[in-house]
Computed example of a mutant assay.
Amino acid sequence: MAPLGDPAPDAPHDIAALPQLPPQRPPRHPLLVPVTGIFILLTIQALVFASVFLIPVTTAILGYFILNAPRRGLERIGIPAPVAAAIFTLSIAAVLFVGGMLLSDPIYEFVTDIPTLLEQVVAALTGPGGPFEAFAVAADATDEALEQAGAVEPMQVQVVDNAGLAASVAAIAPALLGQIVFAMCLLFFLVASGDLFIQKAVQVADRFENKKQTVRMIRMIETRLGNYLGAITLINIGLGAAIGLGMWWWNMPSPWLIGLMATVFNFVPFVGAVAGASIAAVIAFVSFLDLWAALGVFATYYALTAFEGQFVTPSLVGQRLRLNVTMVFLSVAFFAWIWSIMGMVVAVPMLIVVKVVCDSIPRLRKVGLFLGDAEGFLPEKERPA
């Protein structure tokens, strides 16, 4: 029998030999969920409230990531960053200026003619021989019967002096021009600073591994955005040329303008194709006064965009960038809600940035996998086969 106070013969003499329990996670703070929800709501409200400032800032930052690789290429041949920044910004400004000068008159005429076009469409649909003539006759008969029965009281109409849609567009033009100038100036300073932004981001990181991961994340953002924008621009130019030829085959007025509209609209996923096809169908209906011709123009436009979206873009972009289509749709809807049209344009680039950031942070890799393919940052053993 072992003496009192001595350990049992079969008891371990080394405390390290005892089985180690897994570390216990600290209890979650009860206010974590409500505070996080309040933070998200305040962030969304801030994005909406400061949209006039954040839209050009976001555009300039995305442009900086896209132009970093060309800027480094120019530096390798002896062109300094400020000169490269001036070349880029002046080229973009020249394209915007020339495009604005060439398209200002057609766009202004189209905008001012929108009420007339709608009236013509309604008149053609509900007039004699129109497909909705019976509904119009029934509506007129109902109004006449109500007036004879005395059920409809005279309505007081007040004439309001309003210049119409064209005046509204002209009213927002100065603010839009100011945002463009601000974005161009900020883009110039960002590109002219060279790799200063990257250096500061690296200095913020504590450990060497974090510094290396930060550089890799920024380079991945530049590569993904550059590949996406370059491929999508070439695809949209080809799509615009194909749609222009299709509109010329339909004998549409100004087919080149419709093709250019298709090129610009296709930068907005989902919405751009439907909006462009609808506008082309309205123009066709007003020009030919034929519903079947309008449907044919709509089908031609949408079929070309559908072919591009289902076959051309996946074959050229799909190997470099695979995103969850549902998340792309939600991203476009969200940014359209907070930033209107410009939000729809920057929605996919912003989603790319968020995905790369999630891929680079181990705790957020599941979010990155949900947004799309994350092979660029996954360890070899975790990559999908």
Rank of each mutant, 00 (worst) to 15 (best):
M155I: 15
M155S: 11
M155A: 15
M155R: 12
M155C: 03
Q156N: 09
Q156H: 03
V157P: 00
V157N: 00
V159G: 06
V159I: 15
V159A: 13
V160A: 04
V160N: 05
D161R: 13
D161H: 08
N162D: 15
N162S: 06
N162V: 07
G164F: 13
G164Q: 04
L165P: 02
A166C: 05
A166H: 06
A167Q: 15
A167W: 03
A167L: 07
S168E: 11
S168T: 13
V169I: 15
V169Y: 11
V169N: 01
A170E: 13
A171S: 13
I172Q: 13
A173R: 14
P174K: 02
A175L: 11
A175M: 13
L177M: 15
G178R: 05
G178T: 09
Q179T: 01
Q179I: 05
I180Y: 00
I180F: 14
I180M: 06
V181P: 10
F182C: 09
A183Y: 07
A183E: 12
A183N: 09
M184N: 05
M184K: 03
C185K: 04
C185P: 03
L186D: 01
L186A: 06
F188I: 05
F188L: 11
F189L: 10
F189C: 10
F189E: 02
L190E: 04
V191H: 06
A192W: 11
A192N: 06
A192F: 09
S193R: 02
S193L: 05
G194N: 07
G194E: 07
L196D: 05
L196Y: 02
L196P: 11
F197K: 02
F197Q: 04
F197Y: 12
I198W: 09
I198S: 07
I198H: 14
Q199C: 00
K200A: 05
K200F: 01
K200P: 00
A201R: 03
A201T: 09
A201I: 06
V202P: 00
V202W: 03
V202D: 01
Q203C: 01
V204D: 00
V204L: 01
A205G: 02
A205T: 09
